[in-house]
Design a protein around this nucleic acid. Sequence first.
DNA 1: TCTTCTCTGGACTGTCAAGTCCATTTCGCC
DNA 2: GGCGAAATGGACTTGACAGTCCAGAGAAGA
Lengths: 203, 203
Amino acid sequence: MATVIPSTAKGRATRERIVRAAAELVAEHGVAAVSLDDVGGRAPASRSQLYHYFEDKDALVRAVVDATSDAVLGAHDQLLAQLDSWAGIDRWFDALVALQRERQARGGCPIGSLAGQLAERDPQARAAIAGGLGRWEARLREGLTRMRERGKLSAAADPAALATATMAALQGGLLLTQVRRDPEQLRIALDAARIVLRSARAT
Amino acid sequence: MATVIPSTAKGRATRERIVRAAAELVAEHGVAAVSLDDVGGRAPASRSQLYHYFEDKDALVRAVVDATSDAVLGAHDQLLAQLDSWAGIDRWFDALVALQRERQARGGCPIGSLAGQLAERDPQARAAIAGGLGRWEARLREGLTRMRERGKLSAAADPAALATATMAALQGGLLLTQVRRDPEQLRIALDAARIVLRSARAT
DNA sequence: TCTTCTCTGGACTGTCAAGTCCATTTCGCC
DNA sequence: GGCGAAATGGACTTGACAGTCCAGAGAAGA
C-alpha cells in the first residue's frame, strides 16, 4: 500500500505527530542516526502507522525537510517581513546571531545542515531542500527589491545576487559556527554580508 | 586489539590504501552510506585489516577527515601560496568556480560537507573538521596579513575576520552550489567576498 | 634456518533496522 | 445501532552491517 493521505482529524493528527517527532530527532541526531523505531517511540506511533502514511523512510525524510522549511519560515515570519529596510535587515541578522548564542552554536541551520546529509543521496530530498532555501531567499530578495524601488538601493543593484550572496554568508557562517562551536563566526560572516549590501546602497 | 601503527612498508601501504578508498567512497556517497565492506572491496583489504589499523568505523572516519584535509590543502597549495595579492586571490576564486563547473556542481566542499554529517554526531570528528578548515583559513589569513604589511590592505584591516568571512562565503557558496546544482551560486558568493576584501583595501 | 612479529583472509556472530502482514479497534456516517 | 472505511498494534521476516576470531602467509632479524 502506498502513502495514504489521512482523511480524518485523528489521522491528520497522527501524521503530523510523526513528522514532528521525526523532524526533532533528525535535527538532534542527523538523518542517518534516526531509526523508524525512534520516531515511533517519540511520536508515539506504531510501526504500521509510519508505513500507513509514508511509503518508506525516504518519503518520511522528505516530509521532514518540508516541515522543517515551514517551521523555519514560520518562526522568522515577522522578521522576514521587515527585510525591506536597513534596520529590518540588522534586526534579522542580530536575531540569527542571538539564536546561535542561545543554542550554544549547536545544530547549525536546520535546513542547511540537511544539505550535506542528503544532497548526494536522494535527488528528491535535494530538490526539497533547494525549495526550502529558495523560499527563504525569496523573502530577502523581495525585501531588497522593495528597497530598490524606494530608492534605498541603487538602481543598478541586483536584488537576486545580493540575496544569494547573503544566503551564502548565512549558511557558511552557520557552518563555521557549528563546526567551531562559536557564534562569533556567524556574526563575522553577517557583518561581511552587511558590507556587501551597503555597497549597493543608493548614492 | 586496538589500532596498530604499521611498522613495515607493506603495512603502511595497506593502511594508506584503506584510507584513500574510504575517503573516495565517503566523498561520493556520504559517511552513512559507506559500509566497511564497501571500503574493503575498493581498497582492496580484508575485514580484519580494517580492524587491524583502525579501532572502529569512527576512527576510520576521523582518518578520512584528516586525509581529506591534507588532500584539499595539497591540491590547492600553489594557489594558497599566492593569497597575498589581489591577483592571487582572484586566481584562487576563479579556480574554485572552475572546479565546481567541472564537477557539475556535485559534492560541495570535501571538508565542509562532512560537517553536516558529523558535527553533531562525533565530537572528535567535529574537532578534526575544525582543524582542517582552520588550516585552510590560516593560509588565507597569512596572505592577508602579508598584504597588510605591504600596505595593500589598510592598517585597520582585520585579516582574521576577513579570512573568516571569506571562508564563510566559500562554504556557503559551495553549499548553495551543491543544493542547486549551479556553479553560479559559488561565483556570486565569491564576488561578494571580493567586495568585502576590497572594502579593506588601503586608501 | 629458525623464530618471532606483522600482516592477511575470510568465516562467524549478534544486533539492529527496514519493511510486511494481519488481526483488532475506532471513526464517520446513515 | 450498524456498516464500511480508516486507523492502529505489534509480531514477524529479511537483510545488512559492525565487530570478533583464529588460522595461516610473509617478512626480517638472529
